[in-house]
Simulated scan of single mutants.
Amino acid sequence: MSYGRFLLKRGLQGVVVVWGVVSIVFVLRFITPGNAVDAVAPLDASPELRERIAAELGLDQPLYVQYLDYLWELLNGDMGYSYISGIEASQMVFSKLPATIELAVASSIIAIGLSIPLGVISATRRHEPADYAATTFSLVGISTPNFWLGIMLILLLSVQFGIFPTSGRAFGFIEAFRIAANQGVGAGVDAFYQWLRFITLPAVTLGTYFTALITRLTRSGMLEELGQSYVRATRAKGLPESLIRYKHALRNTLIPVITVLGLQLGTLIGGAVITESVFSWPGLGTTLINAINTRDWPILQATLVVIGTGFVIVNLVVDAVYAYLDPQVVAE
C-alpha cells in the first residue's frame, strides 16, 4: 500500500468516527433526563407556551427529521444557538478552543521536557539512586489525581506563598505576542511573564500524569534497545557511549513514544475538564461543565463534537508521522 492510499484510508476511517461521535452526541440529548424546553421556558409556562417553544426549537419534529436536520446544519457550519445566551454555539466553542489547545500544548511541553531525560537517566543508571528516584516519581505521578494535585498546588504556591495566581487566565499566548509587537520589548516581556504565571500551575497539573507515563515508556524502550545486538556492535567499534545512547538507542525508542505523545495530546484536549474547572481556565472543559449545569444542549453538543473531531485529527496526524518514520506500518 502506498503512503497516499494509507492516508486516504485513515482519513475515511476518521470521517466515520466523527460521524459516530456526532450521532452519539445527538442521541444523548434524548436519553438523558430532562427536557430542552425546561431550560428555556419559565417555571410557570403554560402548555401552549411550551408547545410554541418546542416548535421554535424544532423539537416537535420526528426524531429522524431532527437528526437529518442536525447533520445538514453541521455540514453547513451551523451548530445552533445557546439556549441561555442566544450566542452562536460555534462562535462560543471556537472562542474557547485556543485556551484548551494552549493548555494542552503547554502541559505536553512540560511533560516531554521532563519525561524523556528522566527515562534515559533511569534506563542508563539502572538499579542506581537516579533510577529509583525516576521510577518513584513516575509511580507517584500516575497515582496522583489531577484535581487533588491542582488544589494542593493552589493552596501551597498560590495561597501560602503567592507565587502564582489561584485561577483564571489574563490573556493567551497570541495576545501576549501582539502586546510585544505593538507596545515594545518591555511590555512584551511583562505580558509573557504574566502569561507564564497563569498557565504554569494548570499545565503542571495536567501534565503530571503525562510526564509519568512517558517516563516509564522511555525507560522500558531504552532498556530494550540497549540490549539489542546493534548496540553491542557499536560499542565494539569503540563509539562513544553518549553517541550510542542518544543517536541510536534513543532514536529508536522515540518511535513508539511519538505515537503515545500524539494520542495523549488528543486526550489532553478532551480530558482537561477537571483541571480547567479547578483553575477556572476559560477553555472547552469549563464551557462543557457550564453547559451541563444549565442544560444548554447546543453548546454541549458543539463542545463534544469539537473535542471528538480534534481527537480524530490528532490521531490522523500521529498515524501519518508514524507511517513516515516506520514504512512497515504502510506495508501492513
Rank of each mutant, 00 (worst) to 15 (best):
F94Q: 00
S95N: 12
K96F: 00
K96P: 00
L97M: 11
L97W: 05
A99R: 06
T100R: 00
I101A: 08
E102L: 09
V105R: 03
V105M: 07
A106L: 08
S107K: 02
S107L: 04
S108T: 13
S108M: 14
I109D: 00
I109Y: 00
I110C: 02
A111Y: 04
I112L: 15
I112A: 07
G113A: 10
G113F: 06
G113R: 05
S115L: 07
L118P: 01
L118Q: 01
I121T: 09
I121S: 04
S122V: 06
S122E: 07
A123I: 08
R126L: 10
E128C: 07
P129H: 06
A130L: 13
Y132D: 09
A133N: 08
T135H: 09
T135M: 14
S138C: 04
S138Q: 03
L139K: 04
V140N: 03
G141V: 03
G141L: 02
G141K: 02
S143C: 09
S143A: 15
T144D: 02
T144Q: 03
P145Y: 03
N146M: 06
F147T: 01
W148P: 01
G150L: 03
I151N: 02
I151Q: 11
M152K: 00
M152G: 00
M152W: 01
L153C: 05
L153H: 06
I154P: 07
I154Y: 08
L156W: 12
L156T: 14
L156S: 11
S158V: 08
S158L: 07
S158M: 06
V159D: 12
Q160F: 09
Q160H: 13
F161T: 05
F161I: 05
I163G: 10
F164M: 08
P165L: 13
T166P: 01
G168W: 11
G168M: 12
G168S: 12
R169E: 11
F171Y: 15
F173W: 15
F173T: 13
F173Q: 13
I174F: 14
I174R: 11
I174D: 07
E175C: 01
E175V: 03
A176C: 07
F177K: 15
R178L: 12
A180W: 14
N182W: 01
N182V: 05
G186C: 10
G186R: 11
V189W: 11
V189Q: 10
